[in-house]
């Protein structure tokens, strides 16, 4: 299970990184989202991978899962959602203001050079 989990997480992170380095805003946003998925999966695994483990202390139970990473992942997911929503809106705003969805808009740079 560890090998499969590590492969999946690594593949997600690699795809996210690749997309985040693209030149248009939409792939960048998708890439950052994938990256945050990979991070969430990774955080899940930091307490060790267990199946059928209890997260709350009970009498007569000896097989436990670490409850803390789950709380951490929950926090990370909430923050990640908010940030994705924000960056989507921002990407649309950039598209509207610049008239193109390039992350580094060459035309804007040139007109700025001419002004100064």
């Amino acid at each position: 299970m560890e090998a499969l989990f590590a492969t999946v997480t690594g593949f997600l992170a690699a795809s996210g990184l690749y997309l985040a380095l693209r030149g248009r805003t939409f792939p960048v946003v998708v890439g950052l989202t994938l990256l945050s998925y990979a991070v969430n999966l990774f955080l899940f695994s930091t307490g060790g991978l267990t199946t059928n483990g209890a997260a709350v202390m009970q009498d007569g139970v000896t097989h436990y899962a670490d409850p803390l990473p789950q709380a951490l992942v929950l926090t990370a997911i909430v923050i990640g959602f908010a940030m994705t929503a924000f960056s989507v809106i921002l990407a649309m705003r950039v598209r509207g203001d610049q008239g193109s969805d390039q992350v580094n808009d060459q035309r804007a740079e040139e007109s700025k050079e001419e002004k100064s």
């Binding site: 950052l32 945050s36 940030m83 960056s87 921002l90 990407a91 950039v94 203001d97 610049q98 992350v103």
Partner: peptide, 15 residues
């Protein structure tokens, strides 16, 4: 907005 997008993308990667 453009400076903002760079800033947001970089800091998301940082997070």
């Amino acid at each position: 907005t453009q400076a903002g997008f760079h800033y947001v993308a970089l800091n998301l990667a940082g997070s």
